[in-house]
Amino acid sequence: MPRLTREESRTLTREKLMLAAAKVFAREGLGGASIDRIAEEAGYTKGAFYSNFDSKEDIFLQLVEATTQQNIEKIQTALAGVSAPEEIIEAVCTWANTHTHEPDMRPLVLDLIRHAKQDAALTKRHTELFTKQWTIVGKLLLRAFPKGRAPATALELGALVMELTYGTAVQFHAGPTGGTLVRIALNGLMAAAQAPQKTR
């Protein structure tokens, strides 16, 4: 096999460290995990870890960011070529039902929130991450509403869909599903947006 370039080798190292970190975090939580354990799981030294990441919080946030980007791409794919309001809502509900009970990093995100409350820099980065995700998803949903009549901002719409889809309690209940809740919420907002405007 051809020898890897320096950049390819660094990319491979980062990928292995992130995969190892995901396993360690899932097994031990953010508080219980350590850089030593992550490096050992990946088969590298602490030096290799610090050559790619600043801290265990940094690698964890990068894992969350990667998952967030994957979610955005999946929603964009689900809505590609869809323009009718009813079809947009249905496509989002189908996506939500598909992802409600899939294994993800939800417990670790809750763990991160607890840590972030004690770290202003972590809180800022965490907030920016979800603000970006919610806004992108919300902008996709705004297309379903009459122009200028959406009863919520892009940020609010995105937060609504993502939080209903990945809500903690929904994971432990057979129904209603995340998609059902999203459908009820979006149909209600759509009805409000389509209602005749009152004249003075």
Rank of each mutant, 00 (worst) to 15 (best):
P2Q: 14
R3A: 12
T5A: 13
T5E: 06
R6P: 08
E7S: 08
E7L: 03
E8D: 15
R10T: 14
R10Q: 14
R10M: 13
R10F: 07
T11K: 14
T11H: 11
T13S: 12
R14M: 08
A20S: 07
A20C: 02
A21E: 00
A22H: 08
A22L: 06
V24D: 01
E28I: 07
G29W: 05
G29S: 03
L30C: 08
G31T: 09
I38G: 05
A39P: 02
E40V: 09
E40G: 07
E40Q: 11
G43N: 00
G43T: 00
G43L: 00
A48P: 01
A48W: 00
F49L: 00
F49N: 01
F49Q: 02
Y50D: 02
N52H: 03
F53N: 02
D54P: 01
S55L: 05
K56T: 00
D58Y: 03
I59N: 01
F60Y: 14
F60A: 13
F60E: 03
L61D: 04
L63W: 01
L63E: 08
V64D: 08
E65D: 15
E65I: 06
A66S: 09
Q69C: 03
N71G: 12
I72S: 08
I72N: 08
I75Q: 06
Q76H: 10
Q76S: 13
A78P: 02
L79S: 02
A80C: 10
S83D: 13
S83T: 15
A84I: 09
P85W: 05
P85F: 01
E86K: 12
E86Q: 15
I88Q: 06
I89Q: 05
C93K: 03
N97G: 05
T98M: 12
E102I: 10
P103W: 04
P103L: 05
D104C: 13
M105G: 07
R106C: 09
P107W: 03
L108E: 13
L108Y: 12
V109T: 09
L110P: 02
I113V: 15
A116H: 02
K117Q: 15
Q118R: 15
Q118L: 14
A120D: 06
A121W: 04
A121P: 04
A121H: 01
T123F: 08
K124F: 05
K124A: 15
K124R: 15
T127S: 13
T131E: 14
K132V: 07
K132S: 13
Q133W: 08
W134F: 15
K139W: 04
K139M: 10
L140A: 07
L140P: 02
L141N: 08
L142I: 12
L142S: 09
R143A: 15
A144Q: 05
F145K: 06
K147N: 10
G148V: 05
R149V: 06
R149I: 01
A150C: 10
P151K: 03
P151C: 07
A152G: 05
A154Q: 01
L157A: 01
G158K: 02
A159G: 14
L160K: 08
E163S: 11
E163Q: 06
T168Y: 12
A169S: 13
Q171V: 11
F172E: 09
P176S: 07
T177C: 04
T177F: 04
G179W: 02
T180L: 11
T180N: 13
L181C: 14
L181P: 03
V182F: 00
I184D: 12
A185V: 07
A185R: 09
A192T: 12
A193Q: 04
A193E: 02
Q194H: 08
P196K: 14
P196M: 11
Q197F: 07
K198W: 09
